[in-house]
């Protein structure tokens, strides 16, 4: 039996087309992650955007705000994930206005999931949602390709993540201090960038706590040692 790669399910209904992107479509061949720590969550990402072998953007920002202290890491199609994040950003700002209180990470995650699941055969989006809110503290949710929702203490995603499962598993500690958590994310992403051809550029992070969102930037020029603002 031969399997086509037309973009829809093949006759047997099991073998799925893995080559979902259109010819020339911009891809976030990516390394992304989010972790919980003592005071909240940290999101981290590399900055490479590719069109096939060509690097379309070497300083991409894959960490996207959907509310003041709820952010997401995007992987997959740049167009799809931007569109989904835009919709959720709109929904959450409306929610905050009509309810007179900020949304929880759960609220954000369920809106993301509904969009990803109900459009699963049209989207190519792997998302990690991380947020801090007063009631539930820092939380990390992962929404992989099919649109399922997973609550995790930390999540990794994108093509680069395959290289760091071992690193993360042996170095992960729950309830870390902020500096240790930043270091964990940085070392993991450095490793992912080193081994994954589709990941590279700078390392970006966002720290979400009761104090709000704090951005970090680390450049390869200084071997990701110095924090730039």
């Amino acid at each position: 039996m031969e399997f086509g790669n037309s973009g829809s399910l093949s006759e047997d209904g099991i073998h799925v087309d893995m080559d979902r992107l259109k010819k020339g479509e911009v891809n976030l061949g990516t390394s992304i992650m989010a972790v919980t720590f003592k005071d909240g969550v940290i999101l981290g990402a590399d900055s490479r955007t590719t069109t096939g072998a060509y690097i379309a953007n070497r300083v991409t920002d894959k960490l996207t705000r959907v509310h003041d202290t709820i952010w997401c890491c995007r992987s997959g199609s740049a167009a799809d994930t931007q569109a989904v994040a835009d919709i959720v950003q709109y929904q959450l700002s409306l929610f905050a206005m009509t309810n007179g209180k900020p949304p929880t990470t759960q609220t954000a995650a369920s809106i993301f999931q509904e969009i990803c699941y109900s459009n699963k055969d049209r989207l190519s989006a792997g998302l990690i949602i991380a947020g801090w809110d007063e009631r539930y503290g820092g939380q990390v949710y992962s929404i992989p390709l099919g649109g399922s929702l997973h609550k995790q203490s930390y999540a990794i995603g994108g093509s680069g993540s395959t290289y760091i499962y071992g690193f993360c598993d042996s170095n992960w500690k729950e309830g870390m201090e902020e500096a240790d958590a930043v270091n964990f994310v940085k070392e993991a992403l450095k490793e992912a960038i080193k081994w994954d051809g589709s990941s590279g550029g700078v390392i970006r992070m966002v720290v979400l706590t009761g104090k709000g969102a704090d951005r970090h930037l680390y450049l390869p020029d200084t071997d990701y040692k110095v924090r730039h603002t």
Partner: peptide
Amino acid sequence: GPSVGAGG
């Protein structure tokens, strides 16, 4: 999520 509970 974390076994120690959410932080923050």
